[in-house]
Design a protein around this nucleic acid. Structure first.
Lengths: 157, 157
DNA sequence: ATTAAAAACAGAATTATATTCTTTATAAAT
DNA sequence: ATTTATAAAGAATATAATTCTGTTTTTAAT
């Protein structure tokens, strides 16, 4: 297999991660090509998994979910079967949009999006702290967010 | 202004945030309607800002960015003009995909996506620690990620 | 309850785009 | 130089987005 992604592929990925509604025609004209090779390349990027999916990004605030919170968690008992159970519970909470197992001062880091402080407190009290073996729990409440994107800088690739 | 989002709008948002390439026809058939009202509703949701943008989600690992890191930062000097400068610098680093000002044990929480541990170290040494007034810096390296989405549970809205 | 006005919908018609196909060019290997 | 494989161009087709018109439904005021 030759070079996996060439310059053109990288440019296409960059364009689509910024706006996935761009037409093949407009991408083609930007890159000085015609639609068919652009189309074929995009299909290839999809099939090979470089592009995972296409999604609409919503404005959480407008929808009524005004608060983002990060929660660092340390567990007390670390049996494998419990960890699996714990992660499974966490992932099923609709408030949780990210769950990472981390190294450092915590075992897990969660990212939540909730309505407001009250909804956050409800989550802590009637969901999170009901889980057993919970050790240290530390919350970081987002006061403001200056950057929040999924867009990757592809100049590094 | 009447109820801002009705059930149909919410369903449309739910569908599009899961897969923005769904055709109006397929959405219409799922919701038991015809294409024109669906089309009009989507355009309205875009114009009013409920839908911010449409993006392709890439597979970072496949692209060569294998490491996600969270960094908690405390600052020492907190003059307003310095904060602005600091945030501005942070936001311009291509490794940083999120920057939140937080309350709790840190002033800022960053999310980074980088190639590997080496690239992470390079970021710390030759970018982050060059910024003045830096206090405590604490990294959480993602060992594994069980959930990572932008998708919001709309049943709460 | 009745009516007028506005909003939402259905269905058809049109326009634009995605997708496929065929041909031509390019590059690599023998 | 010749063959083979890969990528691109350009035309043709299929599908989807978008617009338009007429109808129904909803809303609000009387």
């Amino acid at each position: 297999m030759a070079q996996v992604l060439d310059k053109i592929d990288t440019k296409i990925l960059g364009i689509l991660q910024e706006n996935s509604n761009r037409t093949t025609k407009s991408i083609a004209s930007e890159l000085g090509m015609t639609t068919s090779p652009i189309f074929e390349r995009i299909k290839k990027l999809e099939k090979e998994g470089y592009i995972e999916k296409y999604v609409a990004v919503l404005n959480n605030k407008k929808i009524g979910l005004k608060l983002t919170v990060f929660i660092g968690i340390t567990l007390q008992g670390h049996t494998r079967s419990y960890l699996e159970k714990f992660v499974n519970e966490i992932n099923n909470f609709p408030e949780v949009i990210e769950c990472h197992r981390v190294s450092g001062n915590f075992d897990y880091l969660l990212k939540l999006v909730v309505e407001d402080i009250e909804a956050y407190e409800t989550f802590i009290i009637s969901k999170l702290t009901l889980l057993p073996y919970l050790g240290n729990v530390q919350s970081l409440i987002a006061l403001s967010t200056s950057k929040e994107t999924n867009e990757i800088d592809l100049s590094r690739v």
